[in-house]
């Protein structure tokens, strides 16, 4: 058991032969991820990194039995790649691409309804199940095996949190980077739910940021269903309203999507909210020792 990906996952890389795809596929293989091939339209039949290249995702699925895909396709074509993966029956689609137009993502979201695919991202670092499979761009060595799950909208802040958790004497079961765009495939609440149901996860770190209502939604769900300690942090307490902070989705539009408002709701729902991102690991260690 583990969340979303494990050592049995058969992973293909869309945009396999491009610069990003090649670099990160190599890193993923080095980590031990079971990469079974890749897709680059027009390059089917070739071999890349000793793995077969296919023209289409469905061809790749037919020949390799792939059930997970990671996408490194430029923003103008990424939405199409996600839908192609879903059509081919890929169960977990991880889209790393940053900068996909919102209109394209509205279409993707609609397309995925009723399909048996879960999308992670876009504009995310991916998923890692420690010491089993890395389907993403994160530095693998940071994520030492343990029993804490991490869900986060941002990349380097996820690594920061994982590093702190490990240094606090704990470790990571799976970390999911859900992405910082206005429309993403898997919400904070859905990721938290996966961890609540995972027997290999004892505690959850939930990292959000300004913009949108996903953290509040997750917090309300946690209040109703809580069985494990949750430590939360919201980045952007000092961000001014109306300014986009790097991520397309990180913008304070109304009173409800400020960091303060989100932190308040999270506290009211029983989550241990830290003001400083420097004490995420410590807070989780304290929570678990109190419980034990």
């Amino acid at each position: 058991m583990s969340v979303l990906v494990n050592k049995k996952s058969k992973v293909i890389v869309q945009g396999f032969t491009g610069g990003e795809g090649t670099f990160h596929a190599e890193q993923m293989i080095a980590y031990g991820t079971n990469v079974v091939g890749g897709v680059t339209p027009g390059k089917g039949g070739q071999t890349h990194l000793n793995k077969p290249v296919f023209n289409t995702v469905s061809e790749a699925v037919k020949n390799t039995g792939a059930n997970v895909s990671i996408i490194f396709v430029p923003p103008a074509f990424a939405a199409d790649s996600i839908m192609e993966a879903a059509e081919a029956g890929i169960e977990v689609i991880v889209c790393i691409t940053e900068g996909i137009p919102t209109k394209d993502m509205i279409q993707v979201k609609e397309y995925l309804k009723g399909k048996n695919s879960r999308l992670i991202g876009p504009n995310c670092p991916g998923i890692i199940t420690a010491e089993e499979a890395k389907v993403g761009i994160m530095p693998g060595f940071v994520f030492k095996k343990g029993r804490i799950g991490i869900v986060s909208k941002s990349g380097t802040l996820t690594y920061e949190a994982a590093d702190q958790v490990v240094k606090a004497g704990l470790g990571i079961s799976t970390a999911i980077g859900i992405g910082g765009d206005p429309i993403i495939g898997t919400t904070t609440k859905e990721a938290v739910e996966l961890f609540m149901n995972d027997p290999e996860t004892d505690g959850i770190v939930m990292i959000g940021e300004i913009g949108g209502g996903m953290e509040a939604e997750a917090a309300r769900w946690i209040k109703e269903n809580n069985r494990k300690p949750v430590v939360g942090f919201i980045a952007g307490q000092t961000a001014p309203p109306g300014r986009r902070m790097g991520h397309a989705g990180a913008i304070v539009g109304g009173a409800d999507d400020t960091a303060a408002a989100k932190m308040k709701i999270m506290r009211e729902c029983g989550i241990t909210v830290v003001e400083s991102p420097a004490v995420i690991g410590k807070a989780m260690a304290e929570k678990l020792s109190v419980k034990a």
Binding site: S154, A235, G236, M245, H247, P277
Partner: peptide, 26 residues
């Protein structure tokens, strides 16, 4: 900072340390 989320978190650290962030920079 490298990364938007960590950049926002760093701004927050500055504030908690008694300063005010002069910028966001990823």
């Amino acid at each position: 900072v490298n990364g938007a989320g960590l950049a926002m978190a760093t701004m927050d650290i500055i504030k908690l340390s008694g300063g005010e962030p002069a910028n966001f920079l990823d």
